[in-house]
Amino acid sequence: MTDLLSVRDLVSRFPVGGGLGSLFSAKQYIEAVAGVSFDLEAGQTLALVGESGSGKTTLARAIAGLGEDVSGDVMFDGRDVLNLAGSDRKALRREVAMIFQDAVSSLSPRFTVRALLLEPFQIHDMMPDDPDAEVDRMLSLVGLPVTMADRRPHELSGGQARRVGVARALALKPKLVIADEPTAGLDVSVQGEVLNLLNDLREKLDLALLVITHNLNIVRHVADYMAIMYLGRVVEIGDTQRIFDEPRHPYTAALLSANPTTDADAAEQRIRLEGEVPSLLDRPSGCEFHGRCPFVRDKCREVVPEVSTTQAGRRFTCHFPLGPDGAPTG
């Protein structure tokens, strides 16, 4: 099967500094995304996982053509995303849709649900012949009653607002949907409803989904593959279940062990990371995770690890990857 999305060595950076000092020195940049590569097929879901500030949302925005200082290669459905302009870039906006993290605040309070769902058609000059019928179709698609069309965002529950956001994202029949923390702020029962909805829509519409989250329960529920990000780099990527069963990178193992559980034995075996996340302005030498890694060795402090690839296609960057017993090899 041909990849819908192919990302190679993607870098996204931002200028930092300012004030009088910047007049007499070279401009500094931080690389929020630093050399990320992955592929995604239609009908598949990839979850981007990592702590806040790991570069997940910046990566997603770059893929959607919203980054400002981006290099590398991003091919979407045969097109070079980073070099699109004019009508081609506008066409990309129709095929790559985003579901934003704060469902209510991302919906204009001045508009009714009907107006919100029709706005994408207006922006792209694609107004349907029967707007009301199209609104009814979109509401039904996400499991909302058609009577919801006359409500405003403040009259919606969190779950209803999230469903409106999903319907709005799907309005122009995109091929890729990027969902940024799709269950943030929702009750546990409503989280399950939203996740089931996304799964059903992916299968029904043959969508590719890119889910940004730090909630590992979401990952296990919806994602075929997962990519773990640290300091703007992917430190491990592969089949979701395989990674849950046998993480190879210590950072992945630490994230998985921190997932809330009722298992007392698992809680006692939790990997606790020491220290703070390093600054992007002063990246550590060698393996950038070495200052927090419980298994660090001298080589980790000095030598940048290469990407290792298993026969099953799992990729990770670690000099001494973890084995089935959770202990480092080598």
Rank of each mutant, 00 (worst) to 15 (best):
M1H: 13
L4Y: 07
V7A: 02
P15I: 14
L20N: 01
G21S: 15
S25I: 00
K27A: 15
I30Q: 00
A32E: 05
A32R: 03
A34D: 15
V36A: 00
D39I: 12
D39C: 10
Q44R: 15
T45Q: 05
L46K: 09
G55V: 06
A60P: 01
V74M: 05
G78V: 05
R79Y: 02
N83K: 12
A85S: 15
A91K: 15
E95K: 13
A97W: 05
F100I: 04
Q101A: 11
P109W: 03
F111M: 14
F111T: 00
F111P: 00
L116V: 01
L116D: 03
P120G: 08
H124Y: 10
D130S: 12
D132I: 10
L139E: 08
S140P: 00
V142F: 11
L144P: 00
R152E: 07
H154Q: 12
A161Y: 06
V164H: 05
A169R: 04
K173W: 02
P174E: 10
K175N: 14
P182F: 06
A184T: 13
A184S: 15
G185K: 03
G185C: 10
D187E: 11
L198G: 08
N199I: 08
A208L: 09
V211N: 02
I212K: 09
I218L: 15
V219Y: 09
V222K: 03
A223E: 01
D224L: 10
Y225A: 13
M229K: 04
V234N: 07
F244V: 01
A254R: 04
L255V: 02
L255T: 05
S257K: 07
A258D: 04
N259F: 03
P260E: 07
T261Q: 04
E268Y: 08
R270G: 06
I271G: 04
I271H: 02
V277S: 03
P278R: 12
S279V: 06
R292G: 12
C293M: 02
R301V: 09
V307L: 14
T310C: 03
R314N: 01
R315W: 03
F316N: 04
H319K: 02
G323Q: 13
G326F: 04
G326T: 03
A327R: 15
P328K: 08
P328T: 01
G330V: 02
